[in-house]
Design a protein around this nucleic acid. Structure first.
Lengths: 190, 190
DNA sequence: ACCTGAACACCGTTCAAGT
DNA sequence: ACCTGAACACCGTTCAAGT
C-alpha cells in the first residue's frame, strides 16, 4: 500500500541549502537534513542518491539565483558602467550568502560539480559587457580577466584575507576602474 | 620508563601534506596519517592537538613554500616585468601543488587559519612591485587588484571553470598585460 | 614520555521489514 | 511507494593501561 511522500527533493534541497548557509558544508549531514524535513536519514535516499548529489543540487540552486541576480543588470548604455554594476551585484550576492557563495566556487569532487551550462548562463551578462567594451576579439579574454578579479577579490574578502588595513571598498572601486580603463583601450603594448 | 618518540610533528605534517596533495582534504584522516608515520591514531595527539591543528600546520607549511618561491623573483628592474614574473611563479606553484594550493585559499574554520604574518610575508614581493609600478599611494589597492586577479584566475583554472573554449594561457597573458597597463598609468578617470 | 586498545559519539549508506 | 530501525564500515577523540 503506497505511502504518500512526507517530503520532496525540493524541500530537501532548500533545507540543505539553509544548513550550508548556517553552518558551512561540513554542517550538512544527512541526519540533520532529515530532521529538518521531518524524516529519518535513510528516507532521504528515496529522493537524492547521495550526499554528493545533494551538494550538487544545492550548488545548482545557488548558481541559478546568482544568474538571476545578474540578469539584465548590465544595460545602462555605458559598457564600463555596466561592468561596474555587474561587479557590485556579484559582490553583494557573495556577501548576502557567504557560505553558499563559497560553496559554488569550492573545488568540489568531479561528480558534485554543477552542469556547465548553468555556469555559462551566469557568466553571459559579463561577456556581453566585455564585448561592448573591448570588442568581440578580446571579449572572452576580457571577461575572464574581470571574472577572475571579481571572484578572487570577493573570495579573499570573505576569507578575511585583506589584513594589511586600508579601505576594502576603495580597493574594490579601484579594481573595477582599473580594469574598465585597461579593457576599453586598444591592445596593451606588452 | 620513557619511550623514545617513534614519530614527530615534522613527520606528521609532511605525511599529512602528502595525503592532502594526493587525495584532497577529506582524504586527510587521522588514521591514515598515523599509518603513514607508523603509529596508531591516538598517538598523534601527543604531537598535534587535533585534526584542525594539523590542517593549520599543513597550511602554514605550504604558505612558507609559496613565499619562498616568490621571494626575490621580482627584481628585473622593470616593475611591469616583475609583476608578470611573480604572477607566473604564483600560477606555476598552484599547478605544481593543486590540492595544497586550494587548501591555503579555502574558507577554513577560524582556528584552522594560518598566522596572518605568514600570509603577509608571501604578499610582500607583490607589494614591492606595485609600489614601483603605481606609486606608494596606490600600491596597496594595486596589490589587492593583482592578487585578487591572480588568485581568482588560478582557482578558476584549477576548478576547470574556463569552459567556453579559447586559449587559457593567452587569457592569463592578456590579464597580466591589462593590469600592468592600467596600473602604470595615472589615476583612472572614472 | 610515548604508544596502545577499547570505548564513545558521531558519520554515510544499505537493506529487510513495515504500512 | 515511501518510511523505518538495525546494521556496517568508517570517522575524531579520550583515556586508562602498558612499557
Amino acid at each position: 500500500m503506497p505511502t504518500p511522500a512526507r517530503t520532496s527533493r525540493r524541500d530537501i534541497v532548500a533545507a540543505g541549502r539553509d544548513l550550508v548557509e548556517a553552518e558551512g558544508l561540513e554542517g550538512l549531514t544527512m541526519q540533520r537534513v532529515a530532521t529538518a524535513v521531518g524524516v529519518r536519514a535513510p528516507s532521504l535516499y528515496k529522493h537524492v542518491s547521495s550526499r554528493g548529489a545533494l551538494v550538487k543540487l544545492i550548488v545548482e540552486d545557488v548558481v541559478a539565483d546568482l544568474a538571476a541576480s545578474l540578469e539584465g543588470r548590465g544595460r545602462t548604455g555605458d559598457a564600463g558602467d555596466d561592468l561596474a554594476v555587474l561587479a557590485t551585484v556579484f559582490r553583494d550576492f557573495a556577501r548576502a550568502h557567504p557560505e553558499t557563495y563559497r560553496l559554488i566556487f569550492s573545488p568540489l569532487p568531479e561528480d558534485w560539480r554543477p552542469d556547465p551550462d548553468r555556469l555559462a548562463e551566469a557568466s553571459r551578462p559579463v561577456l556581453e559587457a566585455t564585448t561592448a567594451l573591448a570588442g568581440s576579439d578580446r571579449a572572452l579574454d576580457a571577461a575572464r580577466t574581470v571574472t577572475a578579479w571579481a571572484h578572487g577579490f570577493v573570495s579573499m574578502e570573505l576569507a578575511d584575507a585583506f589584513r594589511l588595513g586600508g579601505d576594502v571598498d576603495r580597493a574594490f572601486g579601484f579594481g573595477v576602474a582599473s580594469l574598465v580603463d585597461a579593457l576599453s583601450r586598444s591592445v596593451p603594448a606588452r
